[in-house]
Amino acid sequence: MPISYREQAQLTCPHCGGDFDAEVWLIVDADEEPEAAAALRREELNLVECPHCGARGPAGAPLLYHDARARRVIFTPAPGSNDHEIRDQARDLHALLVGSIDQEQRRPYLTDVDITQDMSGLALLLRRLDARRASPPP
């Protein structure tokens, strides 16, 4: 069963008001979807283009990032979410993540979810963690 998860979202363009559907990532597993993880680091994940006016922008979806090798789970909420919505988004995506991992593969780190304010913050955190892993200890 795949760990990463994306779905069709119905969006409304903030520029022209046109409605359209776009595929949006909600869970990215670093090992399973390295291209999506790389796009996340470049802050290009979940960018959508309006088919009506050509405007590009973020899809505005929450995201849960999973990296089993680094033993990390990081959540970022959908922009503009209130505290109740953030808890619901995190709970629902975390349940999807854990449910997609075979029981014998589940590890304690899965219960320790870091939270970032937005996608840019998540991308920055991942780049910093990458830099830390790449540089040898003194």
Rank of each mutant, 00 (worst) to 15 (best):
E7I: 01
Q8R: 10
Q8V: 07
A9E: 10
L11Y: 01
T12C: 07
T12I: 11
P14F: 04
H15C: 02
C16E: 04
G17H: 05
G17A: 05
G18I: 06
F20M: 07
F20S: 05
D21T: 15
E23I: 10
V24W: 07
W25Q: 09
L26P: 01
I27P: 04
E32N: 12
E33V: 07
P34E: 11
P34R: 11
A36N: 04
A38K: 13
A38I: 02
A39C: 06
E44F: 08
L45T: 06
L45Y: 07
L45V: 08
N46A: 09
N46F: 06
L47D: 04
E49D: 02
P51T: 05
H52N: 13
C53H: 10
A55Y: 10
A55V: 07
A55M: 09
R56F: 10
L63T: 05
H66D: 06
D67H: 12
R69L: 13
A70T: 04
R71N: 09
R72P: 04
F75D: 06
P77T: 09
A78R: 13
P79G: 02
G80C: 02
S81P: 01
N82E: 07
D83W: 02
D83H: 02
I86S: 00
R87I: 02
D88K: 06
R91T: 05
D92Y: 04
L93G: 00
A95Y: 04
L96G: 00
L97I: 06
V98G: 01
G99Y: 06
S100V: 10
I101M: 11
D102F: 10
Q103I: 12
E104M: 12
Q105N: 14
R107G: 03
P108D: 13
V113I: 15
V113F: 01
D114T: 03
T116P: 00
T116M: 13
Q117D: 12
Q117T: 14
M119A: 11
L122E: 03
A123D: 04
L124Y: 11
L129K: 08
D130K: 11
D130V: 12
R132A: 14
R133P: 04
R133E: 15
A134G: 12
A134T: 12
S135W: 11
